[in-house]
């Protein structure tokens, strides 16, 4: 069925439909994303989890079209504020980037200019997007610095990135990202390089900003603990697909996809010292060929004959969507999603 609706589902800010990205590499074509479906609600913190290489960063970069178009082939729709981002011209896309959707990464130093003081970098972003005067952008920067907890703002304004700790650098990135009140912030492993006590501070900050600014966050992480603590909803990715989506609470109380269960069970729990941990055998597949079978089949303890066919997405209870033949039979409480 053709979707020519360019409005996302009601209440959704971003709706990714059947996104496929093929990368041309020296070793051949990598089918990095193989039909991603993902919906982020307005004001929602939506987690994306999965092992490394499952396509989390690729999904994030595809939303902002940060790939080299000469080396990748993209199909599918990315509906955002009434438009399909995949169909925007380069100039139109420029206006979305940094203004309506912004992004932060694991390592802030990659994006910060080491030679310009942090206050100026934030002010520069504001001037670029809003064309305001130096005085106005400075005032706004001081306000932003205190909003993201960089105190005292007047002193910090003139400091250079290397003078700040990793935690403060990440706060500077957040200040730049929220400078234009974006509707969506994409945060790709924003706390992975930080110590756990600093991570806690940054996560608190993201949560607070999402509430204050009614800003949605697509929070990419490999840490289920972060999902439990800050996310409203979560999508679990495997081999370039979303295999399960649910409320954050539901994913822990009723994980249906065998992969989700495997991941959650492999986390060491307090009070079980010395017990053998659950493991998932093998490793995620290399994505050099596209197969019709369930991509998890080779590692799955429940795999059966039916798994040779690609599992459809099934809504097993309201808002809880799973792509697995076996889970669809055993977890179904609601109706089927696609007939």
């Amino acid at each position: 069925m053709a979707h020519d609706r360019t409005n996302a589902a009601p209440g959704a800010l971003l709706e990714i439909r059947d996104l496929k990205v093929d990368l041309m590499t020296v070793r051949g074509i990598v089918y990095a994303l193989d039909g991603v479906n993902l919906t982020v609600g307005a004001g929602e913190i939506h987690g994306v989890v999965g092992e490394s290489g499952c396509g989390k960063s690729m999904t994030a970069k595809s939303i902002l079209r940060l790939h080299d178009p000469r080396r990748c082939r993209t199909t599918g729709e990315i509906l955002f504020e009434g438009r399909d981002l995949n169909r925007l011209s380069r100039r139109e896309m420029e206006k979305v980037r940094g203004k309506r959707i912004s992004m932060i990464f694991q390592d802030p130093m990659v994006s910060l200019n080491p030679l310009i003081c942090v206050g100026e970098q934030i002010a520069e972003t504001i001037r670029q997007h809003e064309g305001c005067s130096k005085g106005v952008s400075r005032q706004r920067t001081l306000q932003l610095l205190s909003q993201v907890g960089i105190m005292p703002p007047e002193k910090r304004y003139g400091q250079y990135p290397f003078e700040l700790s990793g935690g403060l650098q990440q706060r500077v990135m957040i200040a730049i990202a929220i400078a234009c009140n974006p509707a969506l912030l994409i945060a790709d492993e924003p706390t992975t390089a930080l110590d756990v006590t600093i991570q806690a501070q940054v996560l608190e900050l993201l949560k607070r900003l999402s509430g204050e600014m009614a800003m949605s966050i697509l929070l990419i992480t490999h840490n289920f603990g972060i999902v439990a603590e800050v996310c409203d909803r979560v999508s679990v990715m495997y081999a370039g697909r979303v295999v399960e989506t649910a409320d954050a609470r539901t994913i822990f109380r009723n994980p249906c996809h065998p992969y989700t269960r495997g991941l959650i069970d492999s986390i060491p729990r307090p009070g079980a010292r010395g017990e053998a941990l659950h493991t998932i055998p093998g490793a995620p597949p290399q994505l050099y060929d596209r197969s019709d079978a369930c991509p998890y089949m080779a590692r799955c303890p429940h795999a059966a004959g039916v798994c040779d066919a690609r599992p459809e997405a099934v809504e097993v209870e309201p808002g809880h969507i799973v792509s697995c033949h076996i889970a669809a039979c055993h977890c179904v409480k609601g109706g089927m999603l696609h007939g």
Partner: peptide, 16 residues
């Protein structure tokens, strides 16, 4: 400060 993979765990968060 460790984020726990258990939404039902009640804990007193000490933020440093």
């Amino acid at each position: 400060a460790i984020p726990r993979a258990d939404p039902d765990e009640v804990k007193a968060r000490i933020v440093l």
